[in-house]
Design a binder for these strands. Structure first.
Length: 423
RNA sequence: GGAGAGAUGGCUGAGCGGUUUAAAGCGGCGGUCUUGAAAACCGUUGAGCUCGCAAGGGCUCCGGGGGUUCGAAUCCCUCUCUCUCCGCCA
């Protein structure tokens, strides 16, 4: 959510900024609603004040043993008009909030302006794509050879975009999670956290998945409105919802392993082959809660922590800065890490690291007490995948294959595979 | 799943229809005293919204939502959560 004061104070500037994202604000409607809000709020509060004063007079008159019939009649009419005004005010307020909740974050000035994925820019590259003296297979063919990666059973158990992993690949999946968690806790100073994989709508509103991306969430049947998490970002970031943190608690750095569930509603026909786009996948997520002045340095650090995983696994990748047209709803600046996939002969996204600034914090009422002012102020929140485990497995299969279709295990990962060097 | 009890500021806890503008204690912060500290004493200490150039006003919040009333922390309905006991259970 953007600062309502900013929208009120300089709607034109906000509107210009959002145009870079391809979002057109209904300036006239917003102005109209805001004028109505102001008038109705003032009127409501005046009437409430009046009611409070009169009601108190009733009490005093009664205590003094006077007759209160006249005052009572007077205040009753006041109550009626108050109720009507309050209803109007709440209606306008709700309409305004509904609109505000759908406005995306403003992008940082360093974010390149662009329309689509095509306009994202390469920031840096690491490693060189390996030359194979044979035609490399893709992960689907490699995974199928011993029935280690089984999509048809996934369909039988659930539906399309689910997979069953067996034997060495199931173990590789577990090893990767363990390896990443150890790296971030031991080398990068994150605290491991284990959270619910089912969350309520308040949490999803807090991190910005609701109301806008509701169609991409799996919801649970039952009386309560509950959803499967699309990312650990939701429960982990929401741990500080409605909190006022002391300054010595910052920065908070959490690493969390979790499954993620996404309907992929907008991706019909995209990546239908293989493990790239599944309804359920696992991920190790980094979340940082920081002071506002530290958030852009934190974004650089967090991105490097994600990169470190790829470097340890010796997987070639490049860092992209997403342009204004491709960046996510809640983000002010995002770096995507793209890993080289020989089977597809191109780079594919394996991590996304973002600074949300105060966008989520405002939705969550997540604050810290600034010692300089003594007042509660909004924190900045960041998160990034480090990494998506399914896609990392895909990258290892395709990059570490030999002519026989065997997979060599990256050195750093061997201790997590009981010393096995090849599968 | 069944029965009962409860939810009040950072914490403990009073209030159960009208000087509550939420008592009191603890904690926090500032001060006096002290070489320094402790103790004691004094003062101070919630959040959000809003009007205003400012000074300074006003409104809302006692788990969430709704209702009764001129007036609700207090009465009613409902949901959520916590605790105790019973049942079931990885």
């Amino acid at each position: 959510m953007l600062d309502p004061k900013l929208i009120r104070g300089d709607l034109q500037a906000v509107s210009e900024q959002l145009k870079k994202r391809g979002v057109v604000l209904d300036v006239v409607r917003l102005n109209t609603l805001e004028e109505q809000r102001k008038a109705l709020q003032v009127k409501t509060q005046d009437l409430q004040n009046e009611r409070n004063i009169r009601s108190k007079a009733v009490g005093q008159a009664k205590a003094a043993g006077k007759n209160v019939d006249d005052i009572l009649k007077e205040v009753k009419d006041l109550g009626d008009s108050l109720k009507a005004t309050e209803e109007q005010f709440e209606k306008v307020q709700a309409e305004l909030n509904e609109y505000l909740a759908l406005i995306p974050n403003l992008t940082h000035e360093s974010v390149p302006v662009g329309k689509s994925e095509e306009d994202n820019q390469v920031v840096r590259s690491w490693g060189t794509p390996k030359k194979f003296h044979f035609t490399p297979k893709d992960h689907v063919d490699l995974g199928a050879q011993h029935n280690w990666m089984d999509f048809s059973t996934g369909v039988k158990l659930s539906q399309a975009r689910f997979v069953v992993l067996r034997g060495p690949l199931a173990k590789l999946n577990r090893a990767l999670a363990q390896f990443m968690l150890d790296m971030h806790t031991e080398l990068h100073g994150y605290q491991e956290i284990c959270v619910p994989f089912i969350v309520n709508s308040d949490s999803l509103f807090g991190t910005g998945q609701l109301p806008k991306a509701k169609e991409d969430l799996f919801s649970l049947m039952g009386d309560n409105e509950l959803y499967l998490i699309p990312t650990a970002e939701v429960p982990v970031t929401n741990t500080i919802r409605d909190e006022i943190l002391e300054s010595d608690q910052l920065p908070m750095k959490y690493v969390c392993y979790s499954p993620c569930f996404r309907k992929e509603a907008g991706s019909y026909g995209k990546d239908t082959r293989g493990m790239i786009r599944q309804h359920q996948f696992e991920k190790v997520e980094l979340v940082q809660i920081v002071r506002p002045e530290d958030s852009y340095q934190a974004l650089e650090n967090l991105t490097m922590h994600a990169e470190a995983v790829l470097q340890k696994l010796e997987l070639p990748y490049r860092v992209m800065v997403l342009c204004t047209g491709d960046i996510g709803f809640t983000s002010a600046k995002t770096y995507d890490l793209e890993v080289w996939l020989p089977g597809q002969d191109r780079y594919r996204e394996i991590s996304s690291c973002s600074n949300m600034e105060a966008f989520q914090a405002r939705r969550m009422a997540a604050r810290w007490r600034n010692p300089a002012t003594g007042k509660p102020e909004l924190v900045h929140t960041l998160n990034g995948s480090a990494l998506a485990i399914g896609r990392t497995m895909v990258a290892i299969l395709e990059n570490y294959q030999d002519e026989d279709g065997r997979i060599h295990i990256p050195k750093a990962l061997q201790p997590y595979m009981n010393g096995v060097e090849v599968i």
